[in-house]
Simulated scan of single mutants.
Amino acid sequence: MRAAEDWGSGVTRRAIRLSGSPGRVDAAIVDMRHDMTCTLRHDGQVVTAIEPAFHRYTLQVCPGASAPLQAMVGMSIDTTTKDVFAGGRARLNCTHMLDIAWLALRHANRGNVEWIYEVAIPDAVSGALRGTLTRNGEVVQDWVVDGQVIAAPPHLAGQSTSAGLMRWLTSESRLPDLEVEECLILSKGFFMVGARRFQLIEGPLSEGYRKNVSGACYGYGPERIDTAIGLTGMGRDFSHDPESLLNGLYKDSTNR
């Protein structure tokens, strides 16, 4: 992968909207590479329908991930985060769509409220990265990450932002449930730093790239990775225009 020419002068940004109403939650995610929405319907006890929509995504095969997401229909709205992601569910789904479906499931018990999460991680040419997560404008997580290891805050120090973080947060950390949610959202923001640091892949995937990512998610599944094609025109830079990022959360909202 080729390095992005503007690395060092921007910000990795991601925004997530969770909007609750009777019997449904509307969720949306927007960042430099993705624009997706998911409506989760429920009867107060279980998921009765789930309606994903892919507006901007990486590979032409990504929308097919709508099918495995349907396995969440019938799931209790009280299902734990650990159980939502159990059994390799993330590898069978689109990572980003599953994330907002999981968040919509969690939001189903919060009533008629709207939450907006925003991730902001300024580029760092050298040294550690500092990233924040806000909820409705209030900072709820503030991390320093050196390489892929959290250096601050102290109670998270030493944990990897990638390998094993889900297991540690959901099985060992004893952190409050809401903080687990926050930590997972911000960790995915740090995962997206690579999408700012390197150029968007367009066209057929190279053999070396396919080897590195095979099996990581639905789009990179072994049964379809050989035919996966990186789409053109899907990248956006919200580094210096966070308002456009937030406006994207409400795009076509009347049709959702």
Score class of each variant (00 low, 15 high):
residue 174 R to E: 14
residue 197 R to I: 00
residue 154 P to E: 11
residue 255 N to T: 12
residue 116 I to P: 00
residue 139 V to H: 02
residue 186 L to H: 11
residue 183 C to L: 15
residue 48 T to F: 05
residue 173 S to H: 05
residue 103 L to I: 14
residue 158 G to I: 00
residue 200 L to S: 15
residue 141 Q to M: 14
residue 241 D to W: 01
residue 201 I to E: 08
residue 56 R to P: 00
residue 231 L to W: 05
residue 164 G to H: 02
residue 14 R to Q: 05
residue 254 T to F: 09
residue 157 A to L: 10
residue 42 H to F: 15
residue 137 G to L: 10
residue 89 R to D: 03
residue 194 G to N: 10
residue 202 E to Y: 13
residue 186 L to T: 08
residue 153 P to S: 15
residue 236 R to K: 07
residue 90 A to F: 08
residue 167 R to T: 13
residue 188 K to P: 00
residue 72 M to T: 11
residue 59 L to S: 06
residue 20 G to Y: 01
residue 247 N to P: 03
residue 158 G to R: 01
residue 39 T to G: 12
residue 220 Y to H: 07
residue 157 A to W: 14
residue 101 A to F: 00
residue 42 H to M: 15
residue 234 M to E: 13
residue 211 K to H: 11
residue 181 E to S: 11
residue 17 R to P: 06
residue 219 G to M: 09
residue 160 S to D: 08
residue 8 G to W: 05
residue 112 N to F: 09
residue 68 P to T: 08
residue 19 S to D: 10
residue 11 V to A: 03
residue 203 G to E: 04
residue 75 M to C: 14
residue 1 M to W: 12
residue 193 V to Y: 00
residue 132 T to C: 13
residue 40 L to V: 10
residue 73 V to F: 02
residue 219 G to H: 10
residue 186 L to V: 13
residue 66 S to L: 05
residue 54 F to T: 06
residue 169 L to F: 12
residue 69 L to I: 11
residue 129 L to W: 01
residue 127 G to L: 13
residue 209 Y to N: 07
residue 179 E to Y: 09
residue 176 P to S: 15
residue 93 N to R: 08
residue 216 A to N: 06
residue 76 S to F: 14
residue 41 R to N: 07
residue 10 G to E: 06
residue 20 G to F: 00
residue 55 H to C: 07
residue 214 S to M: 15
residue 193 V to K: 05
residue 182 E to K: 12
residue 238 F to T: 00
residue 150 I to Y: 07
residue 210 R to M: 04
residue 168 W to R: 09
residue 80 T to W: 03
residue 106 R to E: 07
residue 22 P to R: 06
residue 234 M to C: 15
residue 90 A to C: 06
residue 123 D to A: 03
residue 158 G to L: 01
residue 215 G to D: 02
residue 98 L to W: 01
residue 190 F to G: 00
residue 235 G to N: 03
residue 122 P to L: 03
residue 127 G to S: 09
residue 42 H to V: 14
residue 162 S to E: 06
residue 90 A to G: 08
residue 175 L to T: 02
residue 234 M to N: 10
residue 242 P to M: 11
residue 183 C to W: 09
residue 140 V to M: 06
residue 118 E to D: 02
residue 102 W to A: 15
residue 178 L to I: 13
